[in-house]
Design a protein around this nucleic acid. Structure first.
Lengths: 194, 194
DNA sequence: AGGGTGATGACAGGAACTGACATCGCTCCT
DNA sequence: AGGAGCGATGTCAGTTCCTGTCATCACCCT
């Protein structure tokens, strides 16, 4: 296994997740991740800016998914409906990845540094949604607030989807789209006032 | 200036902000901060967990302010109204600190690591609001969503208050409470749907 | 005066990250 | 075929963040 094995990034991401799960984020060294991936520490830092970033390689596709879905919504759709469409698309993307998402989220939840990184990724998503809404003619501060609201729903729905009790009957597992709809409805209730 | 000069934390916070403003966060070393405060690097880390935390010494009082205000709202007030009261209290706290807030926020905006830290502080505030709402009998996921919504309004209002154009006539400067009300109203509009 | 206590200093060291330069494998051009 | 070019990787040295450990100092209490 010399140089030039293909898919260095994929190997690094898998090695990192494995080690973070096995022994914890703090107790894992970048040199160890690189070694398990058959690379050196220096090469790790050529692929990822830091030790945290290796867990967030998929952030870009989620970003595009949100932006595209908001842009693709009917021109006369209200901001909240464009966001609802984007959230549905996001839920679909996670459809068959619950176990992976669970393992990964467990690592993140166990470490504040990783939570910080996740939060800035979500903030970036929020800003992207706001930008896409502005392109649809939504003015500030409405666009930013709608973006924040959308991410709030995403966070809550994702958390509930990940942490729902396991059902012995696989068919009874609720999928993320259900939690998204439930959370969005609840947000409307709670912001409406009396 | 031997040991035992009083208010070590205050000196560290002031020295850090000054240096972060003067030469940037990345270009400032913890040893330099400690030296300006008349202390050593090791002592810096006894007062603050890391180089970022020194900018967030005031987070605790904001936390208490939010929790207390939510708890103090009339028992029959809707969640969104309890949050509105908390936001008003927060706006009052910043009343005479706009210039300080501006300088500090400029440093944070210029650096992703600091933005991450700020985001996790705000997430902690959101969770605290949700907890206070649950004590008022608000069920999940409504409590969490209301907490997130409250922080979203706070973020947007704070940003607009900080970045509003300077008026030659001091009296024309809008205060944060106005931005809070405006943002909260806009959130209601944008989440209401058609 | 002397002991206790809490804050600080001094020192060593690990790990994260960066810059500079060498090396390797592939591709393209002639 | 052979070499030039190029991008990915390896090697090494160095800085900074952060931590553990132990000594030292100022104050307080008796």
């Amino acid at each position: 296994m010399g140089r030039w094995e293909p898919n260095a990034r994929g190997r690094l991401e898998q090695a990192a997740l494995e080690l973070y799960v096995e022994r914890g984020y703090d107790e894992t060294t970048v040199a160890e991740i690189a070694k398990r991936a058959g690379l050196t520490e220096r090469t790790f830092f050529r692929h990822y800016a830091d030790k945290r970033e290796v867990l967030f390689g998929g952030a870009g596709v989620l970003h595009d998914l949100f932006v595209d879905a908001v842009a693709a919504a009917p021109a006369d759709a209200a901001p909240i409906d464009a966001i609802a469409a984007a959230l549905d698309a996001a839920a679909g993307m996670f459809q068959d990845r619950r176990e992976f998402a669970r393992r990964r989220q467990g690592v993140i939840t166990a470490n504040p540094e990783l939570q910080e990184r996740e939060l800035i990724k979500l903030a970036s998503l929020s800003a992207a949604i706001a930008g896409a809404l502005r392109l649809r003619g939504v003015a500030e501060p409405g666009a930013s607030l709608a973006g924040e609201a959308g991410i709030a729903v995403f966070k809550v729905a994702f958390d509930r989807w990940i942490n729902q009790p396991d059902q012995s009957d696989q068919a009874e597992q609720r999928d993320m789209a259900q939690f998204v709809r439930e959370s969005l409805a609840e947000l409307k209730v709670v912001t409406a006032g009396v």
